[in-house]
């Protein structure tokens, strides 16, 4: 059942076959005083364009580290990470900011909207960073807010919105610059069951329409249910990669149905 890490996984037939993310032998070592902690020990992972990928693993497994590296938030100690054919491990901080702005959208567990800005200003912000013309940015932000179903609250500040509404604004913000990847870090963890389901359905709808790849760190079975593949991380290595069909998902728990392909 242990799979060697870079075996070609068969993507779902509907998915185009080019890669949006490829990692080659990434390791990440944290230095704590004289002690070295190996968060990742050589991870090779390919993610196809338009795919839904979940990253799972117990805490301390290196899951977050992998997630952050793929998202351009952290750099590997060794190895290469290609996002849209660019080795982001070799980029300096200025170039990384550029990449995060235009190629990656982020959805956070705690929404992370800027409290001093209104909904539409929050959605406009990444476009402003990308030098989009102010009027165009505003129009697009308004369209996106309409799409996520809160166009009528465009002038409200996050403090006056419910969690679900804030996460909708966050989704609109993540899609503002037409990213290639959306990184979703436990996007439904702070939401109730019903709202979480709404958010996931909306995310799926919007990203699929735009052909966006979604990479998610989640334990939410609703989220896993719409994933094409699940990567299991254990001890800083890929334990296995499973397609959804091979997962047996029940409400409240996740089990492996059959692991031998």
């Amino acid at each position: 059942m242990e799979q060697s890490t870079s075996l070609p996984m068969n993507p779902s037939p509907t998915i185009q076959r080019d890669y949006v993310v490829r990692t080659l032998g990434i390791t990440r070592i944290y230095h704590m005083g004289s002690e070295k902690t190996h968060a990742l020990r050589g991870v090779d992972l390919d993610i196809f364009r338009g795919e839904y990928m979940a990253i799972m693993g117990p805490s301390g497994s290196g899951k977050s580290t992998l997630f952050n590296i793929v998202g351009g938030l952290d750099k590997p100690t060794e190895g290469m990470v290609f996002v849209d054919e660019v080795d982001i491990a070799a980029l300096d901080s200025y170039e990384l900011a550029w990449l995060r702005c235009r190629k990656i959208g982020y959805i956070f567990q705690a929404y992370n909207l800027l409290p001093m800005l209104t909904a539409i200003e929050n959605v406009t912000m990444p476009m402003t960073f990308a030098n989009v013309d102010a009027d165009d940015a505003r129009d697009r932000a308004y369209d996106l807010l309409q799409k996520v179903g809160i166009g009528h609250r465009w002038s409200h500040r996050p403090g006056r919105m419910s969690g679900g509404q804030q996460q909708r604004v966050a989704i609109a913000r993540a899609l503002a610059n037409n990213p290639a990847i959306v990184l979703a870090d436990e996007p439904t963890a702070n939401l109730d069951l019903h709202t979480g389901a709404d958010i996931i359905a909306m995310l799926k709808e919007l990203t699929q329409a735009a052909g966006v790849t979604v990479i998610s760190a989640t334990h939410d079975h609703k989220m896993l249910d719409i994933c094409d593949r699940v990567v299991w991380i254990r001890d800083g290595q890929i334990d296995r990669v499973q397609r959804r069909e091979d997962l047996d998902i029940h409400v409240g728990q996740i089990e492996e149905a059959e692991t031998s392909h």
Partner: peptide, 24 residues
């Protein structure tokens, strides 16, 4: 399948060089 290693010459880098990023 590990062998094709695209170098940093893609369209992204080109854009990056053209771009004078900044917030007014």
């Amino acid at each position: 399948m590990n062998e094709p290693v695209p170098l940093n010459s893609g369209p992204l880098l080109q854009q990056l060089q053209d771009d004078t990023s900044g917030l007014s």
